[in-house]
């Protein structure tokens, strides 16, 4: 497989994961409207027969993104066996940043985070919401975010998510060959704004739940 095909696959799976994160942060934001709305939204998702195939699809997309990125990183390192004594960023029109230089590291950090995250929420305690068969995920979220340590670590991981998106969003489209004199500057801005919006959104929600969640 050529490096272009590899990057097409990483880009396409990246766009899908980006779309998932947008839905995820919007869904989480419903917590601001109280347990009724939040739990009924979660129930709507969980009771949908398509949720299992979609979850399997998400895991497959995530694994493809990951495996392709890891194998590509080894190939990239092999392409430059001898390092420079001195190498600096070229500046000018270059998009190189701390985020772009650490994509594999931020990605691997998320690989550690996501199983813990899924264990804490999806496979966390099953509380019934009132007398209904609706799962009380609101209560679970409040319980999970009672520890300042958990909230702090969670916020740090969300910064890593934001860094991955800072480069990853615009980079995905370039990898797919989608580029143009108007589109490229636009998607670079959209990528950075959504990186801040998504990471910031998750952090604000966690901090809000930590501060005010139990009172509602």
């Amino acid at each position: 497989m050529s490096s272009i095909t590899t990057k097409l696959i990483i880009g396409a799976t990246g766009v899908l994961l980006f779309a998932y994160l947008i839905l995820h942060v919007i869904g989480n934001a419903l917590i601001f409207f109280g347990p009724d709305l939040f739990n009924s939204y979660a129930h709507m998702l969980l009771s949908n027969p398509l949720v299992v195939p979609i979850e399997i699809g998400l895991v497959v997309v995530f694994l493809i993104h990951l495996v392709k990125a890891i194998t590509m990183t080894f190939q990239n390192q092999a392409a430059r066996p001898a390092k420079y004594a001195k190498k600096v960023a070229a500046g000018g029109t270059s998009q190189k940043s701390l985020a772009s230089s650490t994509m594999i590291l931020s990605g691997l950090a998320l690989l550690i985070f996501i199983p813990i995250h899924v264990k804490m929420f999806k496979y966390g305690p099953e509380y019934p919401y009132g007398a209904s068969d609706v799962r009380d995920l609101y209560r679970l979220e409040v319980e999970n975010f009672t520890s300042p340590l958990v909230v702090g670590l969670y916020a740090m991981v969300m910064v890593v998510v934001g860094m991955h998106l800072w480069h990853g969003v615009a980079s995905s489209f370039q990898s797919l060959g989608i580029s143009g004199p108007r589109f490229t500057p636009l998607i670079r801005k959209v990528g950075k704004v959504s990186a801040i919006g998504i990471a910031g959104g998750f952090i604000v929600i966690a901090v809000w739940v930590f501060l005010f969640g139990a009172r509602s």
């Binding site: 272009i4 590899t6 392409a79 070229a90 000018g92 029109t93 270059s94 998009q95």
Partner: peptide, 27 residues
């Protein structure tokens, strides 16, 4: 040669200022 990480360092050092839109076109 390695894969493209879309950083655009190449574009910034190119003495002929060839932009990475050429790489998107290649794709």
């Amino acid at each position: 040669f390695g894969a493209c990480s879309n950083e655009g360092e190449c574009e910034a050092v190119c003495p002929k200022l060839i932009p990475i839109s050429n790489i998107a076109k290649l794709v």
